Simulated scan of single mutants.
Amino acid sequence: MRTIKNIHKAEYRPIADLVTYSPMPTRDLQMIDPFLFLNHHGPQTYGPNNNGLPFGPHPHRGMETVTFILDGDISHKDSGGNESVIYSGGVQWMTAGSGLMHAEISSDDFKKFGGDLEILQLWLNLPARLKMTAPKYKGLQQDHIPTITFDEGKVTARVISGELSGTMGAFETLTEINLSTINFKDTGKLELKIPLDHNIFFYVIKGELLVNGTSGKSLHLVEFENNEEALEIIALADSTLLLGHAKPFNEPVVARGPFVMNTMEEIDQAYQDFQQGKLGKWDHN
């Protein structure tokens, strides 16, 4: 079975009144190529007449964001003209590519009435050849995401991208990124084979999982060596896992704020282009 290299506890980093945990990047773990960054917002409950999510208009270039709405909703709007509200169980996939502006806030209904909220946002790198690809966005509600069950229904996976046990993911992607969210009932078991040349992204959202004989608890990210293919996951409680794997790009990564490029010169250019309005105009209406 694949050897565990380290287990990283997510750091608590609240954003205004938004509960936020981040397992990566930290001082101990910069990235798991090509997975760059993860923020785990919530779980928390908002009262009526709240301000909702604080992510007003901001730019991105050179990467992709994948946003998992576990509870609550997100109202997305971007400078490419895309608008949507995605609810619990849904996923948003945004390719920033050459650059765009977007805002991720709560819907008017959520701000008015409140409710439970839990959201993950994962940043994925783009290889140098795709950094300046045309931006695009797709949001899918829960019922458009394929599910597959294992272990007599004790394990249910939503296949976001790539494939899992022959089931293809909901999103077509520019790079071969495999992503699933997997719910385990207590004692549920899942056995997988991950290609040796793929890096694994394994984040325990809630509960506790025994992976290859080692416990990974909620808000922990398990880092693996690339020495074997087999993963054996056994739930020690009702649990939820974000599982990803992909070939690393093995390219230089320079990240500054919302931009992720290969060189500092490209970062400087991104800021210059943003200031000149080249990453899209924001309609304030």
Rank of each mutant, 00 (worst) to 15 (best):
M1L: 14
T3Y: 03
K5I: 06
N6L: 04
Y12D: 14
A16M: 14
D17K: 11
L18R: 07
T20G: 04
S22Y: 08
M24G: 01
M24D: 04
T26G: 06
R27F: 13
L29D: 14
L38D: 03
T45K: 15
Y46M: 12
G47L: 08
G47P: 06
G52M: 05
G62F: 01
H76F: 01
H76V: 00
K77P: 02
G80I: 13
G81M: 05
G89K: 06
Q92F: 01
W93V: 04
M94Q: 07
G97V: 00
G97E: 00
L100F: 09
M101T: 02
E104L: 02
E104M: 01
I105S: 03
S107H: 03
D108P: 10
F110D: 01
K111T: 13
G114M: 04
D116K: 14
L120H: 05
Q121G: 00
L122W: 04
P127H: 08
K136H: 13
Q142W: 10
P146D: 05
P146T: 08
T147Q: 13
T149D: 14
T149W: 05
F150C: 09
M168W: 13
E172I: 07
T173W: 03
T175K: 08
E176A: 10
E176P: 11
N178I: 10
L179W: 06
F184D: 06
K189F: 08
L190W: 05
E191Q: 12
E191P: 07
L192E: 11
K193G: 15
H198E: 11
N199M: 07
I200C: 05
F202I: 05
I205S: 03
L209Q: 09
L209N: 06
V211S: 10
T214E: 12
S215H: 10
S215N: 15
G216I: 06
K217C: 10
K217S: 15
V222G: 04
F224L: 04
N226G: 11
E232W: 08
L236H: 15
A237E: 15
L241I: 12
L243S: 04
F249T: 08
A255F: 01
A255P: 08
V260L: 02
T263M: 05
E265R: 13
Q269K: 15
D273C: 04
D273K: 05
F274Y: 03
Q275A: 15
Q276E: 10
L279Q: 00
